[in-house]
Simulated assay, not measured.
Amino acid sequence: MADEPDPQLSVPVGMFEDIEDLKATNAALIAEVKALAAQVTALADGGGADPGEALGGDEAAAGGEPADEGEAEAEQYPPFILLLDSPAYDDELRALIEWVEGVLVPGYLAEPSADARWCHLWFEHPVAVARLHAAWLAWQELTDPASCGYTGPSVWHRDHLDPALRELRASTGPFAGCTKGEHQVGHRLPGLVPSAWTHGDD
């Protein structure tokens, strides 16, 4: 009987740390479930705070990321170019022109033709600016291996670049009135700009 190994000595030391981690995770999950249950009860009774507000506070208490940090992170993304006013619009357009003329035109555009139109003054066509800006934003995200892995560039070509070029270079696209050596913008401008794109004083 004395020769039997002590059962406490045969347990790996790292297991105790794993058990403590599991206990802490379990406690955080229980706290979150209780908070959600209280929130549901409050809503069923017809009172209580807004569900999003209660959840944001409970996430912080349970060890999750506070809502304010998530909102601050989302604000770091650049806005869509058509929603910008000068001088922010001008700065964004300059950066877009640099990308289009430095990456897109030499790497992806062949000689313009009736079936594949292009205007050297593309930045004067709001529709072209909008589509190219969207493709550029996607390019910034999907060519960063840290955020998209190895498949990002393929996704960018398939889901962003190819559809954008199809629309831009089509015979009915924004460059439909532009022929080699000529440039026309007025034929594609709407009479009224959608209100979401304007910043009137409210």
Rank of each mutant, 00 (worst) to 15 (best):
L82I: 04
P66M: 03
H125E: 06
E75H: 07
A62C: 13
T143Y: 11
G149E: 10
T143E: 00
Q76H: 05
V155C: 09
R117P: 02
E111W: 00
Y108W: 13
G152S: 08
L93N: 02
C148S: 15
W139H: 13
C119Y: 02
A128P: 01
A135N: 04
F123N: 07
E111G: 03
W136T: 01
E101D: 11
A95C: 07
L83D: 15
D68G: 00
V127E: 14
S147G: 10
A88L: 08
D85Q: 15
W122T: 01
P126Y: 04
W156N: 02
A116W: 01
Y150A: 15
A88R: 10
P126A: 10
R158G: 05
A130P: 01
I81N: 03
D85F: 05
P145R: 08
A88N: 06
E141I: 05
A138E: 08
V103R: 08
R158Y: 10
L104C: 09
A146M: 13
Y89K: 08
H133C: 08
R117A: 06
V103T: 11
R158T: 15
P145W: 09
D162M: 07
H120S: 12
E98C: 07
Q140W: 00
A62M: 05
P106K: 09
Y77M: 14
G107Y: 00
W99R: 06
L121Q: 12
F123R: 02
Q76F: 00
E124C: 06
A62K: 04
E111I: 01
T143M: 09
S86D: 14
R117S: 06
A72V: 08
G152Q: 05
L82W: 06
D159C: 10
R158L: 12
V105K: 15
R158N: 10
G102S: 09
R131I: 12
L142P: 02
L161D: 02
I97R: 12
V127H: 10
E75R: 14
G107Q: 09
Y108D: 10
A62R: 07
E124W: 01
H133T: 06
D90M: 00
V103N: 05
V103E: 13
S113W: 00
A134D: 10
L142W: 00
E71W: 09
P126H: 07
A128G: 07
S154L: 15
A72C: 07
E71K: 12
T151R: 13
S113D: 11
P145N: 10
D91P: 01
W156K: 03
L137M: 11
Y150Q: 15
A74R: 15
L132N: 01
A88I: 06
E101Q: 10
G70W: 04
S147W: 11
A146Y: 11
V100Y: 02
T143V: 07
L137H: 06
T143W: 13
D68L: 10
D159S: 11
